[in-house]
Amino acid sequence: MREDFREILRLTPAGARVLDVGCGEGDLLDLLTRERGVDGQGLEISADGVSACLARGLAVVQGDADRDLDSFPTRAFDMAILSKTLQQMRDPRHVVSELLRIADRAVVSFPNFGHWRVRWALLARGRMPETRALPNPWWSTPNIHLCTLHDFLALTDDLGLRIESCAALSGGRPARPIDPRSMLENWRAEAALFVLRRG
């Protein structure tokens, strides 16, 4: 099981109403449905992804998080999940604030652009980083809004959100609880998973 999935599973209360934004083929929703009996709803941009979800019996709407989150009513869900998709949004600030309008709690994970390998690629080689967390060359990457741990902190402060917890995700290792304000962690964490609430 993917370590970010394991962490999200741990954070999900049984029977919760969950919205998975960018749910892909529904692996996470399926897991949460089986293990936690959640009342799940997915939003996915690709038709193939949605079709795969439907075939698994998941309730998923084909749509674009940048545009379609505003059709969901306020506080319709207990938890909204945005797993490794934030950096692909056209308007990440709007998406994060929408997640916390729609849900009481948001789980947001993203690759940390402050990770030492990323910094090293730029500093030593003068090239855009291609790392385990960011495997694509610059001209084909879907990641258009990359940020560091501390950039994201600034955004949550700006939006007046409260950080309930934060974990570092590195490779296949188990999620490690961290203080996201630590300078060291902004170097160490390959990716981070935040649990947010309205302030």
Partner: peptide, 21 residues
């Protein structure tokens, strides 16, 4: 269809939607 789906979302209904290519 999207117009319908957005209304279903807004009403808090459990909905699936896909555009078939």
């Amino acid at each position: 269809s999207r117009h319908v789906v957005r209304a279903l979302n807004a009403a808090g209904c459990r909905a699936s939607f896909v555009e078939i290519e």
